[in-house]
């Protein structure tokens, strides 16, 4: 009898989280997967099973490949840059320097700002002619540049915003990890005659590996998830030069109401993300020392 009551209590305690998780994560994922095998219902025509036809359409869509390429480029550059920058900033604000609290706050500030506000700030920076960047360039006599209007520069301009926003966030994790490293390790290494660089390479960096793994998994997910600034700054243009996967999915689903296509692209994104995350864990995890 007692066992049965405990069993009910257990499920009751689990149910709030379970319901939310199923309603908003698992059920939509399964439905999306299911929907990717059906045509888009329009008017009187209800959805019908089309097998892999949606996937065929997706793979033959030039725009999809361009967006995928954009996104891989975006991830391939913003992740290493923002993680490296975060580490450098953390090492800097972890050292003894005047106004350390202020510098730490400054580095972290971009993370606290809503992305829409961040995007608006950068929109002003990038404004041709009287934007901040052009005004600075003007001091050296350089002409106007339309950073967001030029297909060659627009993706780079968005990457700068992403790095600016992400690095401060990752810095906090590195800073926390750095502060758990006892100062006596540095002293022991100093007595052995190791240079600061040797100490970093042989001790600090290996001890930060768990943080690096955590941060880089997050960075990968974020780089495929960040779309807010595209909405505000470029709407994917010009000529899809700044469109990323998630924005592509949003356009397909809610601008063109092609839900089947959107569902198919979502599955492609999910597969890509899981491969990356699992790969990271399996490849990196064995090299990580956990204390």
């Amino acid at each position: 009898m007692m066992g049965r009551r405990e069993w009910i209590h257990g499920w009751l305690l689990l149910s709030p989280a379970l319901i939310l998780l199923f309603a908003f994560t698992h059920y939509p994922a399964v439905v999306t997967f299911w929907a990717s095998f059906f045509s888009t219902p329009r008017g009187k025509r209800s959805a019908k099973f089309v097998g892999l036809e949606n996937y065929q359409t997706l793979l033959t869509d030039d725009k999809f490949w361009q967006v995928l390429y954009n996104n891989l480029l975006y991830a391939g550059i913003t992740i290493p840059v923002s993680v490296a920058l975060a580490l450098i900033m953390a090492l800097f604000v972890n050292s003894k320097l005047h106004g350390r609290g202020f510098v730490r706050m400054t580095y972290f500030a971009p993370t606290v700002l809503p992305l829409i506000a961040v995007a608006n700030i950068w929109l002003f920076f990038y404004t041709p002619g009287f934007g901040f960047i052009d005004q600075v360039r003007g001091l050296w006599g350089a002409g106007e540049a339309n950073w967001l209007g030029n297909p060659d520069t627009v993706l780079g301009a968005l990457m700068v915003v992403a790095v600016w926003k992400e690095a401060g966030f990752f810095m906090i994790f590195y800073l926390a990890a750095l502060q758990t490293i006892p100062p006596s390790l540095r002293e022991a290494a100093a007595i052995e005659g190791s240079s600061r660089w040797t100490f970093f390479r042989r001790v600090t960096f290996p001890l930060l590996m768990p943080t690096t793994l955590f941060v880089s998994v997050n960075a990968v997910i974020n780089s495929f998830r960040l779309v807010d600034h595209i909405f505000v700054m470029t709407e994917g243009g010009p000529d899809n030069a700044s469109s990323l996967l998630l924005y592509y999915i949003y356009e397909a689903g809610f601008k063109f109401w092609d839900t089947a296509h959107a569902a198919t692209a979502t599955i492609a994104l999910l597969v890509l993300l899981s491969v990356l995350a699992i790969g990271q864990f399996f490849l990196v995890d064995r090299k990580v020392h956990y204390r």
Binding site: P182, S184, A188, A190, I191, E192, V203, L207, R291
Partner: peptide, 20 residues
């Protein structure tokens, strides 16, 4: 002079072993 030049070795209270 820096610690290296002094010809010393040191054992710390916490041992300061490199955990990894």
């Amino acid at each position: 002079r820096p610690p290296t030049d002094r010809g010393i070795a040191m054992v710390f209270q916490s041992y300061a072993l490199f955990p990894h």
